[in-house]
Nucleic acid binder design. Structure first.
Length: 424
RNA sequence: GUGGGUAUCGUCAAGCGGUUAAGACCCAGGGUUGUGGUUCCUGUAUGCGUGGGUUCGAUUCCCACUACCCACCCCA
């Protein structure tokens, strides 16, 4: 038990961290170029933030939150998602007084008590962006484009963009009634969960994966037919914007977000290559969230993008991830005098910005070169009795196998010349 | 919360009632005291997830538990 990470959590080991660093650096660059500035918020928040923000009736709030009382008796919760925290920070620091819209980007860990499976953990990580203060569909298109550009920059091909409009509170009511009227005669045939959805949130039935419900739902009134004029025009504008940006998409009336704060635009980037949890990125518009949290009416749009799922997808696609960088130089030595001379050299190489390594206790030369090889060292520097006496060292190119003797003081410039050559 | 599957060395695994518990990879050491990635040799599980049973005997059969995986649900 002591040697086991909690259920649903995973260590990210040194052999994998370069992959994380890679996608992180690409994400940062993409966001920076579009003016989405990084924001960092706490891992936990007061519980009410999520129950109000995410919605009392959602699964997340009802049964998935890691909530606890601290020593002062305050109810705290490990964040199950990112948007609520960013919205809170936006209000707390009155960022709405700054030039609008405000655009944020972040990378966070999230916590949800779920039964784990492929692509679903209890602690997971996501990239996210939020854009507050613009009701224009240009913002939605920009947010979607950012995700699309991110996938493209990583060379990820197997994701499809699905977009939908789930309307605003005004038009959703009409659709709900129409849906109930349509399904009412078939109610008994619905699957058990959908029977309960019928009263609570009939829209979810459209999204049910059971083949029975899928059949029953055929021909059901689509939300898209019940959009009010404003929502319909916005949805059309979004599609025009995406076309103008050259972003391929599919309208999918089945896309329904599981968090209460969403309005109008809902979208997902999905893949069928990473198991049942195919949504790599999901987001949409939330025009009433800020108000719900007690702020001035402020529209917003954003997404969350699952990093574990992204990495799963990249693995499935054999996407190119730059390999971890090996050492630049490895110093091998024979004898105590050579060891000390090597130590001095080691420090100079590092000061010059190289990744240089040397080990003790000494193995034989063969063992040391083997070690250099394992470390992916570009060069081995051998200092033995002869070299020590001559104030020199053997510089061995680990790729070509060539080696030559150079004065110890000139190793740095010899290496510098070589690294420069290879760069050109 | 509900199903189903799997549990033998760091990893991938063979064994399916009586074996010194294969093999491969990895790792460590070595091939006559100075050369890696190739090759050759050597070494590494008193142990088969945990606890009970059945049996003369259990890694092999039965039960329970636990963990992991996959799916439902939900979502990133």
């Amino acid at each position: 038990m002591l040697t086991q990470a909690p259920k649903g959590t995973k260590d990210i080991l040194p052999r994998d961290t370069h992959k994380w660093n890679f996608v992180e650096s690409v994400f940062r660059e993409i966001c920076e170029r579009r003016g989405f500035a990084e924001i960092r918020t706490p891992v936990f928040e007061y519980t009410e933030l999520f129950s109000r923000g995410v919605g009392e009736t959602t699964d997340i709030v009802q049964k998935q939150m890691y909530s606890f009382a601290d020593y002062d008796g305050r109810g705290l919760t490990l964040r199950p998602e990112g948007t609520a925290s960013v919205a809170r920070a936006f209000l707390e620091h009155k960022l709405y007084a700054e030039p609008q819209p405000s655009k944020f980007a972040y990378e966070i860990s999230c916590y949800r008590h779920e039964r784990q499976q492929k692509g679903r953990q209890r602690e997971f990580h996501q990239f996210g962006v939020e854009c507050f203060g613009s009701a224009d569909m240009l913002a939605d298109a920009e947010v979607i484009a950012l995700a699309a550009d991110f996938f493209a920059a990583l060379g990820v091909r197997g994701v499809e963009l699905r977009v939908n409009s789930i309307g605003c509170p005004a038009c959703r009511g009409g659709h709900r009634e129409a849906l109930r009227a349509f399904l009412s005669p078939k109610r008994d045939a619905l699957c058990d969960t959908c029977k309960t959805r019928f009263d609570r949130n009939p829209m979810r039935i459209l999204d049910c994966k059971s083949p029975v419900c899928g059949e029953l739902v055929k021909g059901a009134p689509s939300m898209l037919d019940y959009l009010c004029d404003a929502c319909r025009e916005d949805f059309a504008a979004l599609r025009r914007n995406l076309d103008a940006l050259g972003i391929a998409f599919e309208v999918d009336a089945g896309i329904v977000r599981g968090l209460d704060y969403y309005t109008k635009t809902a979208f997902e980037f999905v893949s069928n290559r990473i198991g049942a949890q195919g949504t790599v990125c999901g987001g949409g518009r939330y025009d009433h969230l800020i108000e719900e949290l007690g702020g001035p009416p402020t529209p917003g749009v954003g997404f969350g993008l699952g990093i574990e799922r992204l990495l799963l997808l990249m693995e499935a696609e054999d996407a190119r991830i730059p390999p971890a960088k090996g050492a630049d130089a490895y110093i091998a030595y024979l004898g105590e005098g050579a060891k000390l001379a090597g130590l001095g050299l080691l420090r100079r190489l590092r000061a010059a910005g190289l990744r240089a390594e040397m080990d003790g206790p000494a193995r034989n030369l063969k063992g040391q070169l083997k070690r250099a090889d394992r470390l992916g060292a570009r060069f081995a520097i051998v200092i033995g009795e002869e070299e020590l006496a001559a104030n020199a060292a053997l510089l061995k190119d680990m790729v070509s196998g060539e080696q030559r003797r150079v004065a110890r003081d000139e190793i740095l410039s010899a290496l510098a010349a070589d690294f420069r050559e290879r760069k050109e």
